[in-house]
Structure formats: C-alpha cells, structure tokens
Nucleic acid binder design. Structure first.
Lengths: 133, 133
DNA sequence: ATCTCAATGGATATTGTCATCCACTGAGAG
DNA sequence: CTCTCAGTGGATGACAATATCCATTGAGAT
C-alpha cells in the first residue's frame, strides 16, 4: 500500500512515541524497528526538517518527538514521503471516471478509499511500537 | 493499489470484452485504452501465455478474448502481473502483526483489505471499456 | 584543547518498473 | 512466389525507489 519509506517513517515515529522521555539513538531505532541504519538516517533527516522530531548531536544525543508530534495525523507523514495522494484517482487509471461516468470498479473503490482516508486521520499517539518484522 | 502494468492489462481486457465478436488490432487497443503501443505488446504477450486472450498473426489478425475469458476474476489478472498478494500483510510492514498481536492500524486495515479482496472477485464480464485517460 | 560520540549530508550502488527500438516470424492477399 | 500486414521477442534505455558508504560537523566528556 504505502511505500517502504513511509512504513519505515511510521515505525520510526511509533518507536519514538513509546520513548518520549529521552533522546533515542538512530542505531537503536534501526534495530528496534528493523530499518536499514543508513537509510534510516535519511528518513530521520526528513522527519526533522518536517518538524516531526528534534535531534541532538554528540554524546548523549539522538532523536525524540517534538512536543506536538503526537497530534500529527498519519496522512501528514505519508504526504511527507509519498507526496500528496490523489483523492479521486481511478483504480483503472482512467482519466474520466467519476459519479456520472464511473468505471465498473468505481463504487467499490470509492468506498474502500473512504475507509482508507478515515484510517489515515489517526494520530501518532495511536501508534505504539510493536517490534521488528 | 495495483501497478501501472496491471491497470493497462485490465483496461486491455475491458476493451476486448466489449469487442468479443472480432479480432482487435493491438494498435486499436493502444489508442482506445490509452496504452503505449510497444509496451502493450508485452502485456498482450503475457495475457496470451496466461490464456486470457488468443492472437492471430498476419493480415486480418489481432487479439480477442478466449471463450472462458469473461469469467476470469480481476484477482487472477493482478496475480499474473503483480504476483501473489500477501493476504495478511501489515500496513506497517511489521512481521508479527495478527489478531493476537495487532499493530494499531490492524483492525482498520483488516476491514479495508477485506473489501478490497471482495472487489477483486469481480469478473472481466463486469468490466466495460470506458475510454482513454 | 582534545577526544569521542552521534547526527548530517553528499556521492554512489542496486533494483525493479515502465517504456522504446528493431529484427524476426507467420499468415493472408495478389 | 512475393509482398505486406501484424504479432513475437530480444536488447536496451530512462527513471524512481531503495540502500550503502564515507567524509564532515557539532556537542559533551576529560
């Protein structure tokens, strides 16, 4: 469904959400959440630039969620990494496909996407770390 | 979602489903369904090997659906091009995520995927050509 | 000041999808 | 038989996503 990178990002934030009290090493996140360490560093950089996490260099440093981080919706994270989702895309990839001229899958797909969007409104508070793959 | 290639394949089959009475040129499908002609030839080859369509070389040739083609489920087409879908994958990409140890998205995701799988049981008969993108 | 730790960021490698090009093969028209 | 049409298939290219490597920067410990 969503990209590997977004999954990593969500797992990262879920991990940080369960350790809000301290600076967490990137290395620790990588192990704990099962993410390639060097790739994780890129993801963490984007999360920091986007304002979801803070970072601290040097001895005793690491990453932690920003104060407001827990109230961020999943959809905001996905948009950071996968770009904006097109909310009226057609499963068939047809250009003209809407309520008036629906493709055969339109009603089914419409309903599925609505539930999907609903799911993405959940916030990071809801995400708890569940272990590596 | 499914891949671009699968979307092309479904559009192709939908187009052929609306012209079951004759041999249809690849070129015509490409124009009618909005698919890159040279790429379409690869897709048609796989559809033929898989037994969804027949082909006829030379003057007056082209492609058409096999007799049984209309009863093929969308899921069968997707599996041909995207490979088997893992029915119990986790949105988070976590390895251990099931009813006993669910990730926070599990119940939501479960329900969405069920509806999705339901949609894929529709057959090609249900797919009518709706024009290019 | 100097050492070590840990994040930062630029360069590069790998992989798979999507796409194009073109030479070959088989079939009907004349 | 020969010409043209149209599918077949191998080789190649463009590109993004994923992943790795390593040199640099900033910060605390001593």
């Amino acid at each position: 469904m969503f990209s590997q990178t977004s999954r990593y990002a969500l797992r990262t934030l879920a991990y940080l959400a369960t350790h809000r009290d301290r600076w967490v090493l990137a290395r620790e996140i990588a192990e704990g959440a099962g993410i390639p360490p060097d790739y994780l560093s890129k993801i963490l950089a984007r999360l920091r630039k986007r304002g979801f996490v803070s970072s601290q260099k040097g001895w005793g440093g690491g990453f932690r969620m920003k104060g407001t981080g827990g109230k961020v919706a999943i959809s905001a994270v996905l948009e950071t990494f996968d770009g904006k989702r097109e909310k009226d895309g057609c499963a068939f990839g047809l250009g003209r496909c809407n309520a008036e001229a629906p493709c055969p899958l339109h009603p089914h797909w419409e309903r599925i996407r609505e539930e999907y969007e609903q799911m993405l409104t959940l916030t990071l508070c809801d995400l708890k770390h569940e272990g590596a793959p």
